[in-house]
Write a protein that binds this DNA or RNA. Structure first.
Lengths: 197, 197
DNA sequence: ACGATACGATACGGTACCGTACCGTAGCTA
DNA sequence: TAGCTACGGTACGGTACCGTATCGTATCGT
């Protein structure tokens, strides 16, 4: 009857040390493999080799390979918080430069194409990925909305269009044209997006 | 000594009818599979099943699976020509709407994520893909350059930035945010990109 | 009509992969 | 310290895949 946490059973158990170790090693190795070789390269046998954990044990913790990959993916994303520099241009500069750097260095971007590809033919993956993507576009949308209430942007501005142009420009360079994504480029995009608004 | 065509041996031979049929069937089935299931789904065995051509025969014409996939990919792209409506906005509207429709209907976009993913870990694929991508961005760049000589855009405009924002906005919606890519959206992007220039 | 050549069918070797069964052993917690 | 529980190793069944070998047959061009 304790009304502590009626949500899921978050951290209920003390948790056997061996379990903790195994899970940690497996998730770590899986994340590495995802980054290096994408979804297709993260085979269970390879995870066994790299983590040093027996296949039997892996299947004691995750009932299927996909379960494991899902869990491992969650460890890869880098959250993006919402700045408040006082001006729209300032906020966008910060966010876009941060995004540009994430695209060059972070682990998630190197897995993303696999996910997008899988999503092309699997609605569950697509939904999960779109939701994850929203985590990155939301800060941009937030500073844009704030600028609208401030009067920095016209009230009828379509935030989604602006977000697509900003984020899209970076993504386009990273994966499609394969040109470098520099800080300077990110800043140019912001300046052009804000011309006379 | 006939100076007809000194280039490669384009269409030199009469070509056995059986060969023509086999190649045609195999390339067709492969293209279908690429569109439906991506690179990974186009296995040789499946191509055999769908084309009705024996595996032996396939390997008589292509020495490896990758050779075959390369050939099949070439049949999938839809060329984009350069319009001349008289104004930059008109040209961009035409191009962007055309691109938006291609993204919804054409065959190539459904294979592209596979290619991008492969390119992430294979420089050859990456180069091929970037070159292919240039085929789509070049018309945009062309009308932009023309507008600069006309004085519709300042001389110091960076065409690459503009191209990335325009194309990127569409691609972003198609693959990352997974929101619809409508004609109206494409037009909004163009209008916003040209604000006060 | 005939000879060269392309074809189909089948079988195979080798690899990689997923997931399970079994069994003996190590390590944690109480 | 005693017993529960997680672990490692191996072996396995089943599938999918690539590419080759072999051999008899059909079809094309001349």
């Amino acid at each position: 009857m304790s009304t502590k946490i009626t949500l899921p059973e978050a951290a209920e158990k003390p948790l056997d040390e061996r379990v903790r170790r195994s899970r940690y090693a497996v998730l770590g190795a899986t994340a590495e493999l995802l980054v290096e070789r994408g979804l297709g390269g993260a085979s269970v046998d390879e995870i066994v080799r790299r983590s040093g954990v027996a296949k039997t044990t892996i299947y004691r913790h995750w009932s299927t390979r996909e379960d494991l990959l899902r869990d491992a993916c969650r460890t890869l994303s880098t959250p993006l918080d919402t700045p408040d520099s006082g001006s729209l241009e300032g906020d966008l500069m910060v966010l876009m430069v941060r995004l540009a750097r994430l695209l060059k260095s972070a682990r998630w971007p190197s897995v993303l194409p696999s996910i997008v590809d899988a999503g092309e033919r699997d609605a569950n993956v697509a939904a999960m990925q779109a939701q994850h993507q929203a985590g990155y576009s939301e800060p941009l949308a937030a500073v844009i909305r704030r600028a609208m209430t401030r009067g920095e942007l016209p009230k009828d501005t379509d935030a989604a269009v602006l977000v697509a142009m900003l984020t899209g420009a970076l993504f386009y360079r990273r994966w499609f044209s394969r040109e470098p994504v520099t800080d300077a480029f990110a800043k140019q995009v912001v300046r052009r997006a804000l011309r006379s608004n």
